[in-house]
Amino acid sequence: MKQDYENTNPKPLAPGHHPGPLPTDVREPGVWDDTPEAINRRKFLTQLSIALGGLTGVALVVPVAAFIVAPLFKETPIVWRAVGDLNKFKVGETVQVSFDDSSPVPWAGITAKTAAWLRRTGDSSFICFAVNCSHLGCPVTWLPGARLFMCPCHGGVYYEDGKVAAGPPPHSLFTYDTRVNNGQVEVRATGVPIPT
């Protein structure tokens, strides 16, 4: 019996020497116990093995996939971040400010920060532009002499109100909400603006 079984192994691969597809069924009649009970038993064991294998897979994949994907669905609580004393900012002046992201991980290091362009427009009113160009997200620079924002990647230019002046950007610069709280200017840290 054992000898027969070994003989039914497919031959080693010999490329170019098998014009047809590989044989899929190598079982020759008479090799196996072909009584109905034996066939039923094999059928059951096949289904059992596939079911158990599937279950094992699910048991492994579900927690792992959940671990990997879950953080992406977690809503980050958005917080206000102070960027400086109200008196520090002169009306009409555009300055770079930086603040911590809403919920940085402890090992984020300097990448926990976000930069923005802040301009005091009145007594207690501010406008805060994201640094990210609306084209592909590169950081725009404020040119005080020209009163323009300019992007170093593809030459996008914005007027001082954030509207597109030239180049490829599809829309105005994104803005963050601002407020004055206890003499501090605060910016709502909503993260990197995602153009949609």
Binding site: D101, T111, A112, G191
Partner: peptide, 22 residues
């Protein structure tokens, strides 16, 4: 993010959050 419908989720997936960080 330019992908229709799922653009925002994809962008968040790339950054693993709403900012580039830890």
């Amino acid at each position: 993010a330019r992908t229709p419908f799922i653009g925002e989720s994809l962008a968040k997936f790339v950054m693993a959050g709403n900012t580039v960080g830890g």
